[in-house]
């Protein structure tokens, strides 16, 4: 079973984690057209590559970011949101 390293709790099996989707920034709702907003809300980028993703360590409810290669499933780096990498 795949291992994921929680920045606070260390290396644990992936069953201890919850995937929270790709890290995306919300556009300013007041400044964008309906089309741009709909694209943000409904579309996701499925192209393989290195993505930053939200992950949560369930037992400790710790949210963090994982940089993961979605093609090879290699987890490159995990860090807390807001940390300078």
């Amino acid at each position: 079973m795949k291992l994921m390293t929680c920045p606070i709790n260390g290396s644990r099996p992936i069953s201890e984690f919850f995937y929270g989707g790709e890290l995306r920034s919300m556009p300013d709702p007041n400044m964008v057209t309906d089309e741009v907003w709909a694209d943000y809300v409904f579309h996701r980028n499925n192209a393989p590559g290195i993505k930053c993703e939200w992950w949560c360590h369930i037992p400790s409810n710790s949210w963090f970011i994982a940089e993961r290669n979605t093609l090879t499933d290699e987890i490159i780096h995990t860090y807390l949101w807001g940390e300078v990498v």
């Binding site: 709790n9 644990r12 069953s15 201890e16 360590h57 369930i58 037992p59 400790s60």
Partner: peptide, 12 residues
């Protein structure tokens, strides 16, 4: 201190 899952339940 270990925060983990034990038999499917979050435990400390």
């Amino acid at each position: 201190v270990i925060l983990t899952l034990m038999v499917g339940v979050s435990v400390t």
